[in-house]
């Protein structure tokens, strides 16, 4: 039988960590706090199922992530959405001319790997994700962070075809690339 630590210490031990994950995924402080609370309460209820295979922290993060995917699924059902990113994308208009050639300069990123050592780089990337339109940000999390397969993502996000998914993923990446280019690599100065 694996034992969990005293649950009264959880808010101090894991509160911030869980909150940061939740905030990154939901981009709403109130909702993020609620998710942290729900996670702790769910963990209390199922504490007998903690197998000790992972650390307590990993276990709690796992519960949080499940809760958030449930939350996203509900939000998608309740709030009908239009994927305007599929029909018209201003960044794409700006990037290519009428014949589909680049009309912006795609600059080389110098020593991109060196950036990984800097905490600021990660904060910039996080900020770039936060700037994505809501649907594309959700897509980013399901695909790039949670590594879900395309079929599952289409279901969770109520996308009618995988072609729409490929288009939205491409636009999401184009935006992230541009944001990092402007907010990080373009500012490094060389």
């Amino acid at each position: 039988m694996h034992r969990l630590s005293d649950s009264n210490t959880w808010p101090d031990q894991y509160g911030d960590i869980l909150y940061r994950h939740a905030y990154f995924r939901l981009r709403d402080a109130m909702q993020a706090e609620e998710m942290v609370q729900e996670t702790f309460l769910a963990a209390l209820k199922s504490s007998d199922r903690f197998a000790g295979k992972s650390s307590e922290k990993t276990w709690l993060i796992g519960i949080l992530k499940h809760k958030i995917v449930d939350h996203i699924r509900k939000a998608v059902r309740e709030r009908p959405h239009e994927d305007e990113h599929i029909i018209f994308d201003p960044l794409e208009q700006e990037s290519f001319d009428g014949r589909g050639h680049w009309q912006i300069d795609v600059k080389q990123w110098t020593h991109p790997d060196a950036s990984l050592e800097q905490q600021q780089f990660w904060q910039t990337l996080e900020a770039c994700v936060a700037r994505l339109p809501q649907r594309l940000a959700t897509l980013f999390i399901l695909r790039e962070i949670d590594n879900l397969d395309s079929e599952t993502i289409c279901q969770e996000m109520a996308l009618s075809s995988t072609n729409n998914l490929w288009t939205m993923l491409s636009r999401m990446r184009m935006r992230l690339r541009q944001c990092l280019d402007q907010q990080w690599f373009g500012k490094l100065g060389h």
Partner: peptide, 16 residues
């Protein structure tokens, strides 16, 4: 992106 999740935890700009 595969490493982003770990770094999120350390971002002390967001705390309770």
């Amino acid at each position: 992106c595969t490493q982003l999740d770990q770094h999120i935890e350390c971002n002390d700009q967001h705390s309770l």
